[in-house]
Amino acid sequence: MTELKYLGENQFEGLEEVAAIARSVAWGAADILRSYYRGEPHTGDLNIENKKEGPVTAADIAVNHYILDNLQAAFGTQDFGYLSEETYKFQSKGVLSSPLPEAWIWIVDPLDGTRDFIDKTGEYAVQIALVYQGSPVLAAVAWPETEKVYYATKGGGTFVETRDGLITQVQVSDRNKLEDLSIIVSRTHRDDRFNNLLQQLPCKNLKYVGSVGCKIATIIEQEADIYISLSGKSAPKDWDMAAPELILTEAGGKFTYLDGSALKYNRGDVHQWGCLVASNGHCHDDLLAQTKQILEKVDG
């Protein structure tokens, strides 16, 4: 069993060893998704089911089993809790009335961007995060169609690994004028309130990408600078944000609520309500202030 200890002041013993296991699991999950994506015979039909929270496929379920089986084999269930998109709905009928009791929680999205997976945009991801007392300390985000895994540890930076095993540290862009920054948005899921916000922000360059993990990867690849999540009738969940948050912040970016406070996970309600803002960090406070001002007018 892999040992992992909190030493105080955001210092952890054994975190790099745990990250290596998570990275390996992310690669295996990516391979499973790629086989389903290509319709390889041994994987079978996608069996798409349209649920209230969005579509679910056989690929989601297969990868969920693979990730949880491997993580639980490595870390057990005594000290580690597990929160997964595909399993939470069976706990208290989909509404966790209280946080999971463990200090260490694995938060897993086996297939982020299921709609993009079905529509064959290539913009889907595997997201695995380990949080300690509500804050992410380790993350792996696999973008299967680019054959890359982005991973980060708290205080250790963000790296990208390619299929040939080459590992490179990555950093966000140094663009520091708000009007020069690019906003990364979804092709769908944009209501009138969000579109009004986009129209009034000074940054007018838009880039369209699917999965949240792919969006944040695009920011740390310096191809975009800003991502904003604005909940309406629904909101993103813990597993949408936990792993992307850490790979962004460890690459030099910022990811906060609109009031500038840090995101928190495993609070009982898995929804991340409100306005969440991710950026390359250089104009983050100005971006928060302008976004707040615009939303107050829009909502007024």
Rank of each mutant, 00 (worst) to 15 (best):
P244N: 08
L181W: 07
S186L: 07
G54W: 01
E17M: 11
K148R: 13
G300P: 09
Y265Q: 06
E145I: 05
E17G: 04
G113N: 15
L46I: 14
T188H: 15
A243W: 05
D112G: 09
I118V: 15
K207N: 05
A73H: 09
N266A: 08
I294S: 11
T291E: 01
E9H: 12
V212K: 13
A20S: 07
Y150H: 12
S84K: 04
V270F: 06
Y150L: 04
I128D: 05
Q91P: 01
G155Q: 07
L181H: 09
K93R: 10
Y208R: 08
S84Q: 07
G232P: 15
A103W: 09
L46C: 14
Q169S: 11
V95S: 06
G113W: 14
R187S: 15
F194Q: 10
F159N: 11
E223I: 05
I67H: 01
V141Q: 03
T43P: 02
W143Y: 07
G28E: 08
L68R: 08
D299T: 09
Y265A: 09
D191A: 05
P110Q: 09
G156A: 08
E179W: 03
L198Y: 14
K93D: 15
D299V: 10
Y227E: 13
C283E: 11
L7V: 06
S92G: 02
Q133T: 10
L181T: 04
I294D: 04
K154P: 12
Q293R: 11
K89M: 13
E53V: 08
I32N: 01
T87P: 10
D60S: 10
L15C: 06
L166P: 06
G28D: 13
I216T: 03
Y227F: 09
P236N: 04
L83G: 04
I184W: 00
K204Q: 10
I105G: 14
Y227I: 09
M241D: 00
V270T: 11
K52C: 15
L246F: 01
G155H: 05
K52P: 06
I21E: 13
Q72A: 15
A152Y: 05
Q222M: 01
D259E: 02
D299N: 12
S231K: 01
G300Q: 06
G157I: 10
D164V: 02
P144S: 10
S182M: 12
G8I: 02
P202L: 02
A139W: 00
N196I: 12
D174Y: 02
V170F: 02
C275H: 07
L258C: 01
Y6S: 14
L7K: 08
D174H: 06
E179L: 04
C214P: 06
V108Q: 14
L287R: 00
L276P: 11
G253L: 04
L130A: 03
